[in-house]
């Protein structure tokens, strides 16, 4: 995952990231119904490289899917794993659903917010971290749990969470 934004990376780079997906679309006419099905994989591919989808990335997806900007925006903002705002180099999603909440997730979120000294969902000034609350991550047997860059961690407590955030801040 990288940061800064895709504007710095440039459109040519986006073509490169989407090369595989675009190749599959070459034989399809522009109005083919299956073209729009590429929208989600394309968003995921761009986001994996750029960290989030900026307006240029949305525009790029309209070009390859044939959807309007509004339609792509509708999809991008619907999904909780597609980010339309800058994210840190590391994304920590702390589960706040029922099992984790019964085991202290609410307190974890408060502790995380205190540690990062910025609100949940924003980027720390050093660009290292974004902490988000998340719905049940399917880690109820590890409650309270978090997903750190896609890796499952739990059970966490205030101390282990702080140690984790500290370690992530030092990492690239």
């Amino acid at each position: 995952m990288s940061w800064p934004t895709s504007i710095a990376k440039g459109i040519t780079d986006m073509n490169n990231i989407l090369k595989g997906l675009q190749k599959d679309l070459l034989h399809l006419p522009r109005t083919h119904p299956k073209r729009r099905a590429t929208a989600i994989p394309a968003m995921q591919a761009l986001q994996a490289e750029l960290g989030y989808l900026d307006d240029a990335a949305i525009k790029k997806i309209t070009q390859i899917t044939g959807l309007s900007t509004a339609e792509v925006e509708e999809l991008a903002t619907f999904y909780s794993l597609i980010y339309r705002r800058p994210t840190g180099r590391h994304i920590v999603r702390i589960c706040d659903s029922v099992c984790c909440s019964m085991r202290g997730a609410d307190q974890l979120l408060t502790a995380a917010e205190e540690y990062i000294r910025t609100s949940l969902g924003t980027v720390t000034p050093d660009g290292a971290l974004t902490v988000l609350p998340g719905i049940c991550l399917g880690l109820c047997d590890k409650a309270p749990a978090a997903l750190v860059d896609g890796e499952a961690l739990g059970p966490l407590n205030d101390a282990s969470l702080k140690a984790l955030l500290q370690r992530l801040q030092k990492e690239d």
């Binding site: 659903s97 029922v98 719905i135 399917g138 109820c140 047997d141």
Partner: peptide, 11 residues
């Protein structure tokens, strides 16, 4: 696509 709180069998 399980997301039901309490469910982790698919995982």
């Amino acid at each position: 696509d399980e997301s039901e709180p309490g469910t982790f069998k698919d995982r």
